[in-house]
Design a protein around this nucleic acid. Structure first.
Lengths: 133, 133
DNA sequence: CTATCTGCAAACGTTTTGCATCTGT
DNA sequence: ACAGATGCAAAACGTTTGCAGATAG
């Protein structure tokens, strides 16, 4: 476990290992609070400062992606491979979309920007929210 | 001016007309505070409650689009035609991208969601932020 | 006339900060 | 040993709410 994350070049405290453990293979796109609540079980003194600090460190190392999908509540994605997202407009559940789209921009549309990346969000209603209506 | 917005079916108060005037042909994708500050000149008693109230009304009438691009700060777009956005990762400037992309999802990727829409965000560094480095 | 809007201030939820103490490396 | 992390509490930030008084239709 420790070996696995040694190349992150951040201090691997027990709290951080718990956070890393929670994020590993996590497809739920958790918010900071989701993470906080999950690791609180192991570390009753855990603080939000530590959660945010760790997320910031992971983000800067490119190990976690911050999603801007939910206004007023950041969500985090430990899967940094190229993919997109589909969000339920009612319950805010997020699922991954693994498909490649050709969405490059020709120079005349970029207003002189240096383009670095892109992401697609699909919006809809998930099965349980739809049938529940 | 009043005639133009009569079909919105909301009360056209002077404050709302000022907000509508500010938004008209506005390509800056302003935040609530940007709007508040702009109309404050004409209405020194303007409050955030009125700005948010008006934006909510316009949104529900489909006259304004809420952008989820900037985490922790909603931005608003009076252009409701289909288009995408390009964001400067440094200064958060947003420019419109008018180009149609074919990004439909086949059923096997939607996890049972009822898909309603999508949007693409391009990320980059704008000219003034890039040359300033 | 009355349903709706305004403006103020207080409350809210999320994120950030300051700082004394502690700990990986 | 010491750069950097933790945990607490306070503050900051954007947004929402309650309500008394005002106003568009």
């Amino acid at each position: 476990m420790i070996d696995k994350y040694r190349d992150l070049q951040i201090k691997l405290t027990p709290q951080r290992l718990a956070i890393l453990g929670f994020l590993e293979n996590n497809r739920s796109h958790p918010s900071a609070e989701d993470i906080y609540r999950a690791v609180l079980k192991q570390f009753p003194t855990m603080s939000f400062a530590t959660v945010y600090n760790t997320l910031e460190a992971l983000k800067s190392k490119g190990n976690v992606q911050e999603l801007k999908i939910d206004p007023g509540k950041k969500r985090y994605d430990p899967d940094i491979s190229r993919h997109h997202h589909l969000i339920c407009m009612k319950c805010k559940n997020i699922v991954d979309i693994f498909k490649d789209f050709d969405i490059s921009l020709s120079e005349d549309l970029t207003s002189g920007f240096d383009i670095i990346g892109n992401s697609i969000e699909f919006y809809g209603i998930c099965r349980s929210c739809g049938s529940r209506k």
